[in-house]
Design a protein around this nucleic acid. Structure first.
Length: 350
RNA sequence: GUUUGAACUCUCGCAGCG
């Protein structure tokens, strides 16, 4: 049972909903009596996959097995639906949950608030936030971070810092993620100095920067032609024993490509594996884009072949980048050939 | 004090808005 649960969780985390369902079916076929943990994991997966009908069926059948869905199960499903941007469905499940006598908690409401934020309905999230008290819930650091993130992303830094201060007033301690949301927001608004200031605040408050923190800043420096600052942080990561990951490399490669040093970017890509960060589709897409922009058709073709030999999957970004390039240099026929291949392989044109 | 639920970071184009 524990083995199946672990496999299920991995599949759900990786958004492999059909794999998750297969694991569940296998468990049943093996004569295993599913427990709450298994149901709850699967509910999260079904939510992410937008499979509300199947989720409801699962709630029924779990009840028939006398394993009644609990608060975590409902919240899992709601959270999954929110991640799939299915807010109406999420709210329907919230009603089901109440009807079944399960009490939503701050995790449930935070998930819904985050869902609203991600579909651009910050006002709905704020409304729910203001009603938390009357629902017997106290906002925690997750709740505040969700709002701060969303406010920052729409450039409302006054609002973000107001919530941040409210959070401190309520003796809620920010985590590094809270700081990351602020730093990221400021970076995206090109307020790099202020972002760096928050980084220093975080450290001063005893928060250890995470790899995401460095990635946010490195990416910002790369996007703003400040490669030297990016490398400065890159080296600081090593000093602080915070190991760069694939995202870190991807950002630096992007910075190199942007400055016209595509070859350097490709060299870095080649070194990633031995540094424990295998290049991903994003890495290849980044270099491919660099090659296409500098008009290097041969190198671009080679890179696409390398993706195949390295077993790196191509995605819509890959094909868009390359086909746009083919069209731009007048290789219209090859572009159409490529498109035809894609359609035959079931790829959705964009 | 062993399993399940909420927040942050990377790549193309298109359209819209400024």
């Amino acid at each position: 049972l524990a083995t199946f649960n672990a496999a299920l969780e991995v599949a759900v985390k990786a958004n492999r909903v059909d794999d998750a369902e297969k694991v569940y079916q296998k468990a049943l076929a093996a004569g295993i009596q599913p427990d709450r943990v298994m149901f709850n994991s699967l509910l999260l997966g079904l939510g992410k996959g937008g499979k509300l009908q199947e989720a409801r069926a699962l709630l029924e059948s779990s009840a028939q097995m006398l394993c009644f869905p609990d608060r975590i199960g409902y919240t899992s499903l709601i959270s999954g639906l929110c991640k799939a941007s299915l807010m109406d469905e999420a709210q329907m499940v919230l009603l089901d949950m109440r009807k079944a006598g399960e009490i939503p908690d701050i995790v449930t409401y935070s998930a819904i608030m985050d869902g609203f934020c991600k579909v651009g309905k910050l006002d709905k999230a704020m409304e729910l936030f203001s009603q938390l008290g009357s629902k017997g819930c106290v906002p925690n650091v997750f709740t505040y971070s969700i709002l701060i993130d969303s406010l920052c992303k729409e450039g409302n830094f006054d609002g973000a810092f107001r919530i941040f201060n409210e959070m401190l007033d309520h003796c809620c301690i920010p985590t590094i993620v809270t700081y990351n949301t602020l730093i990221n927001g400021l970076c995206k608004a090109k307020k790099l100095e202020e972002a760096w200031g928050i980084f220093q605040d975080a450290v001063k408050q005893g928060c250890t920067p995470a790899v995401e923190t460095y990635n946010i800043l490195i990416n910002a420096y790369c996007n703003n032609d400040q490669l030297s600052n990016a490398f400065r942080l890159f080296h600081r990561m090593w000093k602080e024993k915070c190991h760069p990951d694939t995202v870190t490399f991807n950002s630096i490669i992007r910075g190199l490509c942007k400055m016209g040093r595509v070859q350097k970017g490709y060299n870095l890509l080649q070194q990633m594996a031995q540094k424990g960060c295998p290049p991903t589709t994003v890495t290849y897409n980044t270099v491919l884009d660099g090659l296409c922009r500098e008009g290097d058709l041969e190198e671009a073709r080679d890179l696409l072949l390398e993706m195949d030999t390295q077993g790196v999957k191509k995605d819509a970004f890959t094909h868009n980048t390359f086909m746009a390039f083919l069209l731009r240099v007048g290789l219209v026929e090859e572009a159409f050939e490529t498109l035809k291949d894609l359609l035959q392989n079931g790829f959705m044109p964009t």
